[in-house]
């Protein structure tokens, strides 16, 4: 029990911390490939601390509630991942968090927020089925949806699920709001929707969504690490390479529109997953 308590506390603290650090590294690397020096590593934390210190302006009670609910759901998902719980449960809790974020955006009257929320829904529509398919692949490989079963494997999952890993990478690109999928909101506001989904969140509430986003990042990268669960160094390497690819994609693509995302995301994602699943099944 005490062991569990420690794990939960560690997940609650280290989840966002790791997410924030990754975001800081992302900003430095992105700057470097663009010929800039870039911000300090801890810049994301400075940003959030500054946001937390700002005056709290609540557009409506719903939105405040939604920001908190999003953070809660995202943290619970990270905790469950650390407890090696059920994969499907984790994915659903994560999805619930995202839904709260969207509902919060819908509850405000700003057209930017509304359209952003609409696009975010379309994004979820695109990546959620793919995430489930990846989970199904894991199940076919291990015979269980529990993460503990993944850790019991003797051979890295990546060797058997290479295409599903690519699909997970696609989902990660959408979730991390990287080009070409930074449709509903993006890290900088140089977009037609300004800050889209997050337009009406401000100050401490925006900080909550940012922390929750770090949790989401940590969760998805944790999910990626499962594909090389046999060896911690291998897992770390895999995550690092995956994230480098995300930065690469972000910097060599223009932003696309949601029609392209649905067509390409679904087409590519479904095709890759099916190929992998059929291959697993046939063996």
């Amino acid at each position: 029990m005490i062991r569990h308590g420690i794990l939960i506390a560690a997940a609650l603290i280290f989840g966002p911390l790791v997410g924030g650090l990754i975001s800081g590294m992302d900003r430095i690397l992105t700057a470097r490939v663009q010929s800039r020096i870039g911000p300090p590593l801890l810049q994301p934390f400075y940003d959030v601390i500054k946001l937390l210190g700002k005056e709290k302006v609540v557009v409506n009670v719903w939105q405040a509630f939604c920001a908190n609910a999003y953070l809660t759901a995202a943290s619970i998902a990270v905790v469950l991942l650390c407890l090696r719980s059920d994969l499907l449960l984790i994915l659903f809790i994560q999805a619930v968090g995202s839904v709260f974020l969207v509902v919060g955006a819908f509850s405000s009257t700003s057209p930017y927020s509304q359209i952003g929320a609409h696009r975010e829904l379309l994004q979820m529509l695109c990546y959620e089925p793919l995430l489930i398919l990846v989970a199904v692949g894991v199940y076919l490989q291990t015979g269980s949806f529990r993460i503990a079963a993944v850790h019991a494997l003797h051979q890295p999952m990546l060797l058997k699920l290479p295409f599903l890993f690519l699909v997970l990478g696609l989902v990660l690109t959408i979730k991390l709001r990287k080009s070409p999928f930074d449709l509903s909101t993006s890290h900088h506001a140089h977009q037609e929707l300004v800050k889209g989904l997050l337009t009406d969140y401000s100050g401490p509430l925006l900080a909550l969504t940012e922390i929750a986003h770090w949790c989401d990042t940590a969760l998805l990268l944790g999910f990626c690490s499962l594909f090389w669960a046999t060896n911690p160094i291998g897992a770390l390497l895999l995550v690092a390479v995956t994230y480098l690819m995300e930065i690469w994609i972000d910097n060599v693509c223009a932003r696309m529109n949601w029609r392209w995302m649905l067509g390409y995301g679904w087409g590519m994602g479904m095709a890759l997953s099916l190929v992998n699943l059929v291959w697993l099944y046939a063996r």
């Binding site: 470097r32 490939v33 010929s35 020096i37 060599v252």
Partner: peptide, 21 residues
């Protein structure tokens, strides 16, 4: 697609163009 790759790799290997003012 991905035509920008060589440019961003070159940037990564070279000094940044900005200064710490």
């Amino acid at each position: 697609m991905f035509t920008m790759t060589s440019t961003i790799l070159r940037n990564l290997l070279k000094e940044p163009a900005t200064r710490r003012y």
